[in-house]
Design a protein around this nucleic acid. Structure first.
Lengths: 197, 197
DNA sequence: GCATCCATTGAACGAGCGTTCAATTCAAGA
DNA sequence: TCTTGAATTGAACGCTCGTTCAATGGATGC
C-alpha cells in the first residue's frame, strides 16, 4: 500500500505507472525489467513493491485503466439519435482518442498474450463492450435502412482494425493534420457501410 | 553451418525454424528462450548454434522469409490489367494468405520492435514494397476514373489494416467460411474505394 | 577394423531476472 | 527534543538467460 500521509513522494505511484507505460510500449512487457522501471522513476527496484503487487499487476492495471477510460470517454461523447451521426462521432472519437494515447493503445493490443488467463478474460470482456458499441450503431443504421452491410460483426472488426491502424503510421509532423486524417477515414467508413452521402 | 553430408539430422534446420515460429507467435520473442526452442526440437540448446548464429538471426530470418514469400506469392497472382479486378484479386489474396499463415503474419507485425535497427530497416523496406503494390492499384484505378479516393496513401494503410485484422478473429470453426469472409471484406473494400458495383 | 569427421552434448560463463526483507532514513506529531 | 512510523534502500535469494566450447559418440569412407 502507498503511504497515506502527505510527503515528498505523494506522486510516486502515478510516476511508476507512467514509466512502465512508456517502457512497455517501447520495448515490450517481457523485455522490460523492474529495475529499468525503477531507474526511470529514480528509485531502487524494491521500492516499486510498495505501489504494485508485482509486474503482472502493473501491466494489467495499465491495460484495464486504458479500456475503462476508453469506454467512459465514449459514453460521454455518444448522444446523437441518428445512426449516421453516431457513426461519424464514433469514427472521429476513435481516431482522436487513439492518436492522443499511442502508448496505451499500443500495449493494449500488443501485450494481451502476456496477461495471465484471468486478466486476459477481463480485458477481452472490456474490449468486447467497445466493439459492441459500434455494432449497435451499425445494426441500428441497417434497421433504419441507412446502411447496407452484409455482415455487421465482420464490419465491426474490419472498421475497428482500419481505424486503430492510424496510430501505426500517423506522425504529427507529417503531410496530413489530425482533422485531415479524421476526414479521410470518415469518408472511407461512410462508403464502406453503404451510407449515401 | 549445418552439415553437408546426408545424415539423420538433415531436416533439423527447418525444424528449428518451425519451433521458433510457433513459440515466438504464441509467447513473443522476448518471452521464449533458446532452451525452450531446443526442447521443442528435441535437442540441447547448444545444438541450435550449428544452424543459426544467434536468437536475433532466428527472428529476422523468419520475418524476412515471410515478407519475401508474401511478395513472391503476390507477383505470381497479380496479372489482370483492370484495376477493379486487380483490387479484388489483392483483397482475396491477402485474406487467404493471412489466414493460411497466422503465425508468420503475427510475428511479422508484433515483433518489429525486437529487431535490431538494421534488421528493422530491411523489414520495413519489404513491407513498404507490399504496400506500394496496393497503392499502385489504387492510383491506377483513380486515374481510370473507376475509384474515388480522397487520399490513396491513407487508403492503403486503412485497407491493409482492415484486411490484416481478419487473422485476429477468424476461426475455422466459426459462423463464416473463408470464402464468406473474403466476400464480406471485398464488399467493404469495393465500397470504401468508391467502386460502382 | 580403423581413422575421420562433425553434429550434438552438457557443463560452464557472467549477467540479469522478479521478488523479499532487515536495516536505514527522515519528516511529522507530541 | 524525542518518538513514531512509513518510504526507501541495498543486499540477498534462487533462477533463468544467451552463448561458448571441450568432450563425446556414432555413422561414413577407406
Amino acid at each position: 500500500m502507498a503511504r497515506k500521509t502527505g510527503s515528498h513522494a505523494e506522486i510516486t505511484g502515478p510516476r511508476i505507472r507512467d514509466a512502465a507505460l512508456r517502457l512497455f510500449a517501447r520495448h515490450g512487457y517481457a523485455a522490460v525489467s523492474m529495475r529499468q522501471i525503477a531507474a526511470e522513476v529514480g528509485v531502487q527496484a524494491g521500492a516499486l513493491y510498495a505501489y504494485t503487487s508485482d509486474k503482472q499487476a502493473l501491466l494489467f492495471d495499465l491495460m484495464k485503466g486504458h479500456m475503462e477510460h476508453l469506454l467512459g470517454s465514449w459514453k460521454e461523447v455518444a448522444r446523437s439519435a441518428d445512426p449516421a451521426q453516431q457513426l461519424e462521432t464514433f469514427v472521429r472519437f476513435h481516431i482522436r482518442y487513439h492518436l492522443d494515447r499511442p502508448d496505451e493503445v499500443f500495449i493494449s493490443y500488443m501485450e494481451l498474450r502476456n496477461l495471465e488467463p484471468e486478466n486476459f478474460v477481463a480485458l477481452e470482456s472490456l474490449r468486447r463492450r467497445y466493439e459492441d458499441a459500434l455494432q449497435d450503431i451499425l445494426t441500428e443504421g441497417c434497421a433504419a435502412g441507412q446502411f447496407t452491410i452484409s455482415d455487421t460483426r465482420v464490419a465491426v472488426m474490419g472498421l475497428i482494425a482500419m481505424l486503430t491502424g492510424v496510430s501505426t503510421w500517423f506522425r504529427e509532423s507529417g503531410r496530413l493534420s489530425r482533422s485531415d486524417v479524421e476526414q479521410v477515414y470518415w469518408d472511407m467508413t461512410r462508403r464502406a457501410v453503404g451510407l449515401a452521402g
